[in-house]
Simulated assay, not measured.
Amino acid sequence: MILKHLYLFFYSVLFLILSLVIHWNPSGAEPVSCFSGYGEAIVYGIGLSIIHYFLYRLLAKEKSKNHILLIITISGMLFLTVILTGLFLHRDYFSMMLPVFICLQNILYRKEVFFHHLERHRAINKLLYILSIIMLLCWIVWILMMGYLISSRQEPRWIESLIYNIYNIFLMIIFFISIFDLQKKMKIRILVIDDSIWLSQLNLSEFLGLFKNEILVQLLVNHKKQGRINCHDLVKALSDKDLMTINDMDCMCCKENKQKATLCKEYRKIYRQILDIKKVLELMQIGTIVYPENKMDVVTVGWALKLNSNIEIIIEDEKISS
C-alpha cells in the first residue's frame, strides 16, 4: 500500500519539478519563466501535482470496476492539464505528455481488475506486451539521443533537459518493472483445488466429468512433479476415487512384464479418455498430451502434459493423491 502511494507521488511530482526548473531557468535560454517568483512556482507546482495525484489514485483504486469510460475520462483530464499549462504557462509542460502516458500504462498494468476485462482476449494482451516493448526501446533510444545532445552542448537548454532526463530514467525503470508484471499477468492460470480444475472463471471439471477430470488432475499434478504418469499410477488414482476397479497385482504384473497395453480393457478405457482430454486441451489452446517415443513404453513411461508457454499450473490442494 505504501509502495503504491510512493509510485503515485512520483508520477504526480513532475509538475512541481517542472515548475521549479522553469522558474530557475539555469541555462538562461528562451522562453523565460512565467512565474513572478519561486513562491508562485511552488504554488502552481504543488496544486497541479495534487490534482494529478488524486486522478492517478482514482484510477489505481483496487475496487474500481475501471470501465473504459473511467479510463478515458481520467486520461483526458490528465492530458488536458498538461495541454492547458503548456499553452498558457510554459511550453516545457508539453514535455509531460509522454511521462503522463507512461504513468497511465504503469497504473493499468498493475491493476488486476484491468486484466479481468482482457483475460479472454489473449491477442490483445500479447499486442499490449509487444507495443510496450517497442515503446520502451524507442524511449531508451530517445534518452540516449538526448544524452548525446546534452553532453555535446548542442541542446540550448541542456541543464533543464538533463533534469528531465534523470526523472525519465527513473520512470523508465518503473515502466520496465510494469512490463515484467504484464508478462506475468499474461499467463493463463490453471487452478487445481479440491479435485476441481479451474481455467480463469471456467470450471473444467463440470465439462469433463468425473473420470476425465481425475485423469487430468493427475496429469497436472504430475506435470508439477516428475512430469509423467503411467497407466498403473493412473489406475491406482482412479481406483482410490472408486472410478475404476482392478486387481492391483494384475496391474503391477502388466507393468513389470511389459505386456502389450492394448490387451488390457482398463488401459483401452483410459486411452480413449486421454484422447478426448487431448482434443479439449488443443481446442482451448492450453497444450496437448504427449506419448513416449516408443508407444510400447506407455505402460512404464506413461503420458505427459505439454503446456503452452503462457500456461501456469497452481496446485492448492496438497491432499490430491499423486
Rank of each mutant, 00 (worst) to 15 (best):
K4F: 00
H5Q: 08
N25H: 08
S27T: 14
S27M: 05
E30T: 14
S33T: 11
S36V: 08
A41I: 05
I42F: 14
I42Q: 02
V43L: 13
G45W: 03
I46Y: 07
G47L: 12
S49E: 06
H52K: 00
Y53A: 01
L59V: 06
S64L: 08
S64Y: 02
N66M: 13
H67S: 14
L69M: 12
L70Q: 15
I71S: 07
T73I: 15
T73D: 09
L80I: 10
V82C: 03
G86P: 02
L89T: 11
H90Y: 01
R91I: 12
R91E: 09
Y93Q: 00
Y93W: 02
P99V: 04
V100C: 10
F101I: 07
F101C: 09
I102S: 06
C103P: 00
L104E: 11
Q105I: 05
N106C: 14
L108H: 04
Y109E: 09
F114T: 03
E119F: 03
R122P: 02
A123T: 06
I124C: 02
I124Q: 01
K126Q: 13
L131I: 11
S132Y: 05
L136R: 01
L137F: 14
L137A: 15
M145Q: 11
I150K: 06
Q154F: 06
Q154P: 00
P156H: 07
P156F: 07
R157T: 14
I159K: 09
E160P: 01
S161A: 15
N165G: 11
N165A: 15
Y167S: 10
F170A: 13
F170N: 12
F170Y: 13
I173F: 12
D181Q: 13
Q183L: 13
M186N: 15
I188R: 15
R189D: 02
R189N: 04
V192T: 13
I193M: 06
I197D: 04
L202H: 03
L202K: 11
F207M: 10
G209P: 07
K212V: 01
V217D: 02
G227H: 09
N230G: 08
N230K: 07
N230H: 07
H232F: 14
D233G: 01
V235N: 03
A237W: 00
D242E: 10
D242S: 12
M244G: 00
T245M: 02
M249T: 13
C251S: 13
C253A: 05
N257R: 14
K258M: 13
K260R: 11
Y267K: 05
Y267M: 04
R268E: 08
L275Y: 08
K279G: 06
V280M: 15
L283K: 15
I289L: 10
I289M: 10
V290D: 13
E293W: 03
K295T: 11
K295F: 11
K295V: 10
L307P: 06
I313W: 05
E318F: 03
I320Y: 02
